[in-house]
Amino acid sequence: MKVLFWGTPEFAVESLKALIQSNHQVVAVITQPDKPKGRGQKVQPPPVKEEALKHNIPVLQPEKIKNNQEFVETIKQLNPDISVVVAYGKILPEEIINIPKYKTINVHASLLPKYRGAAPIQRAIMDGEEETGVCIMEIVKELDAGDVYACTKVKILPEDDIITLHDKLAKEGAKLLIEVLDKIEKGQIEKVPQDHSKATYAKPIEKEEGKIDWNKPAKDIFNQVRALKVWPKAFANFRDFQVKILNVEVLKECKEGKPGEILKASDKEGIVVKTKDGCLLIRTIQFPNSKPISSQEAVRGYRIKEGEKFE
């Protein structure tokens, strides 16, 4: 089949690679415009564009896709059998969705109808889910509400965080995408409507969600830290600093204390902090304008003492 691929971030690269290696032909890649990134604000192409150019696939980067008739005509001329959307970053107008013969499908990183929306991987971790997955669905006007072709389940392990789970789901999604495309081409697959009454929404992550509330249970803070490890990173106030807490462990045993209080500060064992119902061992911490360090290094370098408090 002739495939028109829509995608932007790293998550979409796995699906594009799988398509390139498959029997299907990628006629073009549509991705977001290049944007300035990092401290130097150097303009950089999206990961999907970089991958496409390695294989000499035409790349389109429209500033806008709504009310852009010239762009619509370009898609019609490409004459794709199907469009595949993987984390493109914008909602496609109906006119564009319906151009290909088999319309437009999406690789979505949740077990639909749960976690429709922009941040399904982070929300699943934050909510303490033990299982998530990836679904291939048909795109319709309403957000992530289309009929589902297939889903694959993925366990969320205690050691998983946003980075490891993202990578697992990207790989599983790519594999499932090819299976679904092969079956669509052969007419061997049926779509199943979602149960809209069971739908939940994974709204975009906001920066303020990184702020740790030490009055919460230890498990909730543990989930927050691992879900937000890439952005905005979990953070707390300590002395006159805002520090980032990058890695924690829930302890089975815990002394009495007030939420946020440092119960142990050891250059051998690290920093132990009281929460609502238990204790967390901070494994990795980052102070302003410095690299992430172990909490043992933090105890030595910043002379952290028992009885001090994270706010």
Rank of each mutant, 00 (worst) to 15 (best):
F310R: 02
P46V: 03
K233C: 08
L251M: 12
V27R: 05
D182Q: 13
V26P: 01
E256W: 08
E297C: 05
I121W: 00
D195Q: 09
K183G: 04
E206I: 13
K186G: 07
W231G: 04
K183S: 14
E311L: 15
R39D: 06
N289C: 02
V48L: 09
K90T: 11
V84S: 09
N98W: 07
K103R: 15
T132P: 01
D34W: 05
I162N: 02
D147W: 03
A119R: 00
S294H: 08
W6A: 11
Q41V: 03
H196I: 14
I293D: 10
P232I: 06
P46R: 08
E70V: 13
Q25R: 13
V107Q: 01
L177I: 10
I162R: 07
K175G: 04
V85M: 04
V299L: 10
G117V: 08
L16I: 11
F71T: 06
I282R: 00
A218L: 01
P62W: 07
V154Y: 06
L263W: 00
E14D: 15
V180E: 10
S290N: 13
V180A: 03
I57K: 04
K211W: 03
A52N: 05
T275K: 04
P36C: 09
N106V: 01
Q44T: 15
V134M: 03
D160M: 04
E172A: 15
I245K: 03
G260E: 08
E261R: 03
G173K: 00
R123M: 08
L92D: 08
I304M: 00
K37T: 14
P80T: 04
H166M: 13
I156G: 02
A218E: 06
V272T: 11
V243L: 09
K49P: 06
